Simulated assay, not measured.
Amino acid sequence: MVGKDVRATGVEVRPVAGHIGAEITGVDLTDDLDDAVIAAIRAALLRWKVVFFRGQRLDHAGHVALARRFGRPIAWPRRGSASPPDVPEIETTADRLELSGRYGMERAEWLHRRNDTLLHPWHSDWSNHLDPPAATMLRAETVPPYGGDTTWANLAAAYAGLSAPVRDFVDGLRAEHRLGVGYQPRPGHDAYVEHLLGHQTATAHPLVRVIPETGERVLFVNGFYVEQIIGLSRPESRAVLDMLLEQAVRPEYTVRFRWEPGSVAFWDNRATVHMAPRDAAHLDFPRTMHRVLIAGDVPTGVDGKPSEPLTGGPGGERP
C-alpha cells in the first residue's frame, strides 16, 4: 500500500511482483523534484529494491543530476570507454558492441571464457571493491522490439527465506570478492590475464551484510565475483555458494523488466543481484543503455565488523 505522505507528493508506487520491484508514476524525472518526492522514491527503493519509471526524457546531464539527489555519482575510467567524454559519470553500453574486441576477443568468446557456471552472470556491481556502489540508475535509449529484458533478485527476501540453522551458519562467514573469478584463460598470451595481474582488486566481505537504513540482513552473494568463502575449502565453498546463489535467484524472489525507450530502472546495489539479458545477442536489433553508479560505503556484517581489503582499496578497478 502507498502511504498518505507518498500520495500527497503525487507519486504513485505500484508493486509489480511479490518480493521485489515497483513502478513509480506521477513523476517527471526532468523536473526539479522537491525533497518530498525524492524521499518518496528513496522509501520505495528501500522497500522494493528496484523501482521503474517509464516514458522519461532524461539526457546525460539530467541523468547525472538526478543521481546526484541520491548520492555521489562515480566517474568512470576512460580506458576505451563508450561513455561521453564530457560526462564521465555516464557509462554507455551498446548491445553486442559492448564486449566485441575487448582484450582481443569477440563477444562470444569473451562471454564463454568468463561465464563458468549458469549462476555466474548473476551479480551486483563492483562488489570486488571495498566500498561497492550503493545504487545503480540505468536508462534505456534504444531497445529491441522483443528480448533484452533485465532481471533482479531480492537478497533480503532470499536471506529471510533460509532456514534458521542456515542463517545462523552464514551470519558468521566472510567471502572473497575478486575481479576475474571463474575466467578461463586463453592458450598462450592472454591480454585479460595481464589486465587482472596489473589491476587486481579483492575484498573480504561479510556473507550477510546489514543495510544501515533498514537494519535488514541481506545475503551478500555474487556469482560474478565470488568463488571462495574464507575458512572453507574450495569444494565446501563451491557447494555452499551454489546453494546460496540458487536460493537468491529463486523465481519468487525475482522481477523481470521489459525495457522501452525512455525507461529508467533504479536499484539498490547492496540488496539485489541482477542478470543482464541473455536472449538478445543473436538478434539484429540495437540496444543502447546509459548507466550511472552511486557511491556506497564499506559493508558491515552481523557482527558489526566492516569489510577488509585484500588487494586494492576503495574505488578500485572495475571489471
Rank of each mutant, 00 (worst) to 15 (best):
H112A: 14
L130E: 11
V13W: 00
A22P: 04
G18V: 13
G80E: 14
H290F: 07
P306T: 10
E12S: 06
R209M: 08
S233L: 02
S233W: 04
L66S: 01
R69T: 03
E109H: 12
P319D: 08
F52A: 03
D297K: 03
A8M: 15
L118D: 12
T117F: 02
G104I: 15
A134P: 03
R287C: 01
D297P: 11
H274A: 10
A175F: 03
R57F: 09
G104Y: 08
A44H: 11
A82E: 03
V218P: 00
V292C: 04
V240D: 03
H205A: 11
P314E: 00
E109R: 13
I24C: 02
I294S: 09
R7A: 14
L196Q: 13
A239H: 11
A17V: 15
H120D: 12
E106M: 15
R113Q: 07
A94E: 04
N222T: 03
F285D: 00
P309F: 09
A140I: 07
E176L: 15
P261D: 14
I294F: 07
L219G: 05
R174L: 06
T93N: 07
D168H: 05
D149K: 06
E12W: 00
L219P: 07
G296S: 06
R47T: 10
H195L: 01
G180C: 10
R114W: 13
D168M: 00
S100L: 05
T254R: 05
G315Y: 05
D190R: 00
V264Y: 15
I211M: 09
H177V: 02
R167Q: 10
L310R: 13
P132A: 03
A82C: 02
T142W: 04
R14C: 02
R178L: 10
L33K: 08
G316F: 00
V16T: 09
A8P: 10
E216R: 06
